[in-house]
Nucleic acid binder design. Structure first.
Lengths: 130, 130
DNA sequence: CAGTTGTTTGACGCTAACGTAAAGCCGTGA
DNA sequence: TCACGGCTTTACGTTAGCGTCAAACAACTG
């Protein structure tokens, strides 16, 4: 159901992914050097698969959320941990991270509300001009 | 209603604010050097008021959301712009920023949902052990 | 065969956001 | 008076996250 959908290519060059996600190849290599991804090799050349691509998506989302690569690395580990590990410890870590994210969610909602307020004020002022 | 509540001190030293918010005085001076705050001076000594303190709160919230000081600076400007400015331009900028924030909100909700899913899996596995 | 395109590994450069002395001024209490 | 804590500026150091060559190899193309 997952391992044989046989539709998307499942083989990507570093340039493929760089193009697709609008980042540099340098960035991708940097992520690898930090252990965030671990593509296979064909000789010396990196070969990326769906799994690597999926991880890249998570990395970029993490970046949009303002996380450091270190944080993102921990975050990715939570996914990997699914494949058998210290499960109790995993649950703790997940809860930790969820707390942070919910704080962030609260901050975000406050900020959005304040900006909408500002916009409202701006509009009422402008309603008398052209 | 706002200008004479006469309760909170309204006069803070740099160390006061550093303590209150758990940041370094160096950081506060750095924010000033970047124009994010502009405390008055008594001789050479910085004197902070409620307004400065309020700005600091916004700055720290921005940081929790992963924004750069540059971004936060722009963001603060939206508040200042309330005091008469190019109002149309203001509305545009606010809308721009709102878009980003809403993207971020979506990312965040996705991430939270995924983590909750992982936690659920962890719990069902652990339900058979001690 | 030469040239182009895509890949690799260094290695140095750069910006952001402070940390960390260093050295001096200023007011207060013993 | 003098030591002390708190404030100041100046300046160099540090980490993260890449950008930007440089030099070299590998495959394809004309």
């Amino acid at each position: 159901m997952t391992s044989s959908d046989a539709d998307s290519p499942d083989l990507y060059s570093i340039a493929d992914l760089a193009r697709e996600f609008g980042i540099s190849t340098r960035a991708i290599r940097f992520y690898e050097s930090k252990g965030l991804i671990a593509p296979e090799r064909l000789g010396a050349t990196r070969v990326f698969r769906r799994r690597d691509r999926a991880r890249l998506i998570l990395i970029l989302r993490g970046k949009r959320l303002g996380f450091s690569l270190r944080d993102i690395s921990d975050y990715l580990a939570l996914y990997d941990a699914d494949r058998g590990q210290q499960v109790n410890l995993l649950a703790e870590k997940v809860d930790e991270r969820l707390k942070l994210l919910e704080q962030q969610l609260a901050d975000l909602q406050t900020t959005i509300a304040e900006l909408q307020e500002i916009r409202k004020l701006a509009r009422t002022r402008v309603s008398s001009a052209s």
